[in-house]
Amino acid sequence: MGRYILGRTIQALLVIWAVGTLVFFMLRAVPGDPIQALLADVDPTAADAIRAKMGLDRPVYIQYIFWVRNTLQGDLGQSIYGSHVSVDRIIVEAIPRTLSLATIAFVISFSLGLATGIISAVKKYSVWDHSFTFAAFLGISMPDFWMGIVLIIIFASTLGWLPAIGYKPLSDGFWPWLSHLIMPALAAGLPFSAALARITRSAMLEVLQQDYITVARSKGLKEQQVIARHALRNALIPVVTVMGISMALLFSGTVVVENVFAIRGLGQVLIANILNRDYPVVQGAILLVAVLLVFTNLFVDILYKVIDPRINYDSYEK
């Protein structure tokens, strides 16, 4: 187990390094110079001075070495546009927003998905089953940004129950924080609850056919007990896999939803600065998204092994 975790951690670090390096060189291989875009040929000497200050006049491989060294020291550089603003600060401000949103979205998708999935399986072919199935199809076919707009139209402009856009930190109080996150979390989470509902349903159906369920029933156990104690527990493993993947996807998948609700999280920082060609910020945001994704995946894989000791990871390590 220890060796497995160590091996996977090294692998994860390698993936992050590879992504960072790829993005570094690809951003520089493309024509178009952010400094030139900024100063638009107004003052070539000023442009040269800025380039020199930011090290953009050095050969690319030297820039790369400096970038690796600084990144390892936790310094992601400075934003080209908001001068003197460090990328570290931009990202440190963005992370709690993305994490709050992803966490609530995860809670929503998890509870809704699991509940509807279990009902669908237990009441197979009932009206509930059919409606949940259809709802699940709608859920994955709906663009998340549109879901967000529909929620804003219903709950903010029409009913006025929730604030339409923006973000309040948890330090401003629990309700202000939560009320700003309910709609974005629904928009981001519903597609995942659809997927989770389907996997829960099929995993439960498979388990409910097993002999030990028949045995449990013929012992005279109440149906609720059969479902909760015997069926659910055994159906949980594929469900946990999907949950883990959803969690990883949510950390990065809130990009569009953050944009709809004007939440300045990681995704929003990434998008806004792609349009500006602000390399250091784009690079930093991509790196952080990569770190979140890769380590969530790693965490889920380890969790998976804890839940199901039968899994032999030697064959996975190839």
Partner: peptide, 19 residues
Amino acid sequence: MAQTITRGKSIVLDGGDDL
């Protein structure tokens, strides 16, 4: 059994295992 899965990135749904 046809399976519902979420592979890597894209969510794949499935209408049912009974079909």
